[in-house]
Deep mutational scan, measured.
Amino acid sequence: PTIVLKVSPEELKALEKAGVEIEKIEKNEDGELYITLTPEALKKAGFE
């Protein structure tokens, strides 16, 4: 199962800087950012 999270541009930068593997980055028509994370990326980021 993949996880989709709504993030701010600042959060996205912080995640990328931390080396979190982001599978997909999407922006909706309201300009909101959503990222898709794999279970492996979540484990690496410390989420179980």
Rank of each mutant, 00 (worst) to 15 (best):
T2S: 13
A18G: 08
E29V: 12
E23A: 09
L42A: 15
K27P: 07
E11M: 15
K17I: 11
E23W: 15
P39K: 14
D30Y: 13
K6I: 05
Y34G: 01
V7C: 04
K44C: 06
L37W: 02
V4W: 08
E48H: 04
V4F: 11
L5E: 01
E21G: 05
T2D: 05
V20F: 04
E29R: 11
E48S: 04
I35L: 06
Y34M: 07
V4G: 02
A41C: 03
K44N: 10
K13T: 10
K13F: 14
A45G: 10
S8L: 07
E16R: 15
Y34A: 03
K24D: 04
G31T: 02
G46V: 03
E40Y: 05
L33I: 13
E10P: 04
T2Y: 15
K44V: 08
V7E: 00
E48K: 02
G46N: 03
L37Q: 00
I3V: 13
E23T: 08
N28L: 11
K17G: 08
V20W: 04
L37F: 06
L12S: 01
E48W: 05
G31M: 03
L12F: 10
I22T: 02
P39A: 14
E23S: 09
F47M: 13
E29Q: 11
V20N: 01
L15R: 00
E21A: 08
A14H: 12
K13V: 11
E23M: 13
L37M: 10
V7A: 02
I22F: 10
D30S: 12
I25F: 06
T38Q: 05
K17H: 09
K44T: 05
E26N: 07
A14Y: 14
K43M: 12
P9C: 08
V7H: 00
K17E: 09
E32D: 12
E21C: 05
G46K: 04
T38V: 02
E32I: 11
K13G: 07
K43I: 10
F47W: 11
D30N: 13
L42G: 03
V4N: 03
L42E: 02
F47N: 05
E40Q: 08
L37H: 00
E40K: 04
G31C: 06
I22P: 04
L5C: 07
E10C: 15
D30Q: 13
K44F: 05
P9A: 09
Y34C: 05
G31V: 01
L15I: 13
Y34Q: 05
E23G: 07
K17N: 09
G19E: 06
K24H: 10
G31P: 01
K13W: 14
A45P: 06
D30T: 12
I35N: 00
T2I: 12
N28W: 08
G31E: 04
I22V: 06
L12Q: 01
T2E: 04
F47D: 06
A14E: 11
I22K: 00
E48Q: 04
K13D: 11
T36H: 13
L12E: 00
P9E: 06
T2C: 14
V20T: 03
G19C: 06
L5T: 02
K43R: 14
L12W: 09
L42N: 02
L33M: 08
L42H: 10
E40C: 14
I3R: 12
E26Q: 09
K6W: 13
D30H: 12
E40M: 09
E16S: 12
K44Q: 07
A45M: 08
E11C: 15
